[in-house]
C-alpha cells in the first residue's frame, strides 16, 4: 500500500517539468498547423503593411501630414505623467502615459503622440508636460515651437532630457526634415 501510494506521489512530484525545454519552445508542436499559422501571419503582415501605407496616404497625405513624437534622453530629473499638445491654440492631444510606456521611452522608444493634417503656412505648437520633477515635486512645463508647414511631411520631436548642471529636466522641441 505504502509503496503504491509513494509511486503515485513520486509521479506527481516529478511531474514538475523542465522550464525552457526544447519541447516547450515549439519544436514539438504539430508542424502542419504551426506552419499554417506561420503562413497566415506572413499573409496578414503583408496585408497590414499595404493597408497602413494606404491609410496614411489617404488620411494623412504628405503635403498636409504633421506628426508629433515624444522621446526621452535619460530623464533622471523628471518622471513623465502626461503630455498635452495644442496646435494653433487648439488642443489636439492629451495623453496619459503608463509606467510601461515611460519605461519603453526611457530605453529609447519614441512615442508618436499625434498624427494629423495641417495646411501649409505658419503654425504654432505648444506642448505641456506634467509629471514629477526633482525632489518628488509636481512639475508642469511648457514648450513652444513656431514652425512653417511646407509641402512635405512635418515631424516634430518633443524631447525630455536632463540639464545636468542645474539638475533640472529640460524640454526641447525639435523639427525634423
Amino acid at each position: 500500500m505504502k509503496a503504491v501510494i509513494r509511486n503515485l506521489t513520486l509521479l506527481a512530484g516529478l511531474g514538475i517539468s523542465f522550464v525552457l525545454s526544447a519541447a516547450s519552445t515549439g519544436a514539438g508542436q504539430a508542424e502542419g498547423l504551426d506552419d499554417q499559422v506561420q503562413n497566415l501571419k506572413n499573409e496578414v503582415l503583408e496585408l497590414n503593411r499595404e493597408l497602413f501605407l494606404l491609410e496614411e496616404e489617404l488620411l494623412f497625405p504628405a503635403n498636409t501630414q504633421v506628426s508629433v513624437f515624444v522621446s526621452m534622453d535619460i530623464g533622471e530629473y523628471f518622471s513623465l505623467d502626461s503630455v498635452q499638445i495644442k496646435l494653433d491654440g487648439k488642443e489636439v492631444s492629451n495623453y496619459l502615459y503608463t509606467e510601461r510606456e515611460v519605461a519603453a521611452m526611457y530605453r529609447g522608444g519614441v512615442h508618436r503622440l499625434f498624427l494629423g493634417n495641417l495646411k501649409t503656412g505658419s503654425h504654432q505648437l505648444v506642448a505641456i508636460f506634467t509629471g514629477t520633477g526633482p525632489h518628488g515635486r509636481d512639475y508642469r512645463r511648457g514648450a513652444t515651437l513656431d514652425f512653417e508647414k511646407n509641402i512635405g511631411t512635418k515631424f516634430v520631436e518633443l524631447q525630455i532630457s536632463d540639464r545636468q548642471i542645474k539638475q533640472q529636466p529640460e524640454f526641447l522641441v525639435r523639427e525634423w526634415e
Binding site: 503582415l45 497590414n48 503593411r49 497602413f52 501605407l53 496614411e56 506628426s67 513624437f69 522621446s71 510601461r100 510606456e101 519605461a103 519603453a104 521611452m105 530605453r107 529609447g108 522608444g109 519614441v110 512615442h111 508618436r112 515631424f155 520631436e157 525634423w176
Partner: peptide
C-alpha cells in the same frame, strides 16, 4: 530616425506584432 524609435516603443512593451508592422511600413 524617429520611426525607428517608434518601432522600439512597441518592441520594448513586448508588442511584437505592432512593432513588426511599423518596422515593415
Amino acid at each position: 530616425d524617429l520611426h525607428y524609435g517608434e518601432v522600439l516603443f512597441d518592441f520594448y512593451q513586448d508588442d511584437y506584432f505592432s512593432a513588426l508592422n511599423k518596422l515593415l511600413v
